[in-house]
Amino acid sequence: MKIEIRDLEFSYPAGIQALRGITLTIGSGEQVAIVGQNGAGKTTLVRHFNGLLQPTSGEIQIGGWDTRKYSVAKLASRIGYVFQNPDEQLFSRDVKTEVAFGPKNLGYPNEQVEILVHEALEMTELSDKTEMNPYDLSPTWRKMVAIASIISMDTPIVIFDEPTTGQDAANIARIANVIKVLRERGKTLITITHDIDFCAENFERVIAMSQGKILLDGKANEVLGQEDRLATTYVDPPQLTRLATRLELNDTIIREDMFLTELHKKLTRTL
């Protein structure tokens, strides 16, 4: 499902202008990462997608639905949004109720809700924690509950707001796996992240934001190669990319396999 944003501007009531003219199209089934310094406006941007925030000017279409004309509850059938902070998102007494809340509201028949909840719990490795209170789980597992409660809604678009921030390596691997499965199912995925390695490994398109505007937008290796411009929004390219630049390898490298191939080529050339 396609997302189209035209000339989006937004100011918070307190007067801070958080978005200063954003035009952007995200195609159906694309995997996009959004990077940029704290306060660049990433969260503010994605909160417009499901109507939690309304544009001060400009417009957003979600699969042809103008977000100004549809309620948040309606848009929820097309967009799942995993909040940055799970504590702002979780409110049920046990994991299973929490995960079933979304699909029930969307009006799936009961058997379908059961299946969706089961799948979401499986994918997030929560199957043995269904009866637990989310508040009794560790922050890393709370994050997984927050993710499960959104993917159980089976929406064509899923947004993750800083999914890996504060997570341990094991949980980052779990989250990467969820993203992989969703990609295989053809979902449109938008992920805000500070974890540039995570970004390089899992996303094809990268958007860098700075001070309410889009700074760079393109294929992951094109964007992540622009060290100087990324520095203006306090993003460092992945270590591998920087190493490859210093070694003067051809092409911008963002993944291990690419690095090894190019290094091999260069060595055979020079030896």
Binding site: V72, G80, F91
Partner: peptide, 12 residues
């Protein structure tokens, strides 16, 4: 906000 994002209709 969290409940509306998950399809709870609060405004009709």
């Amino acid at each position: 906000a969290a409940q509306r994002s998950r399809g709870l209709d609060t405004e009709s």
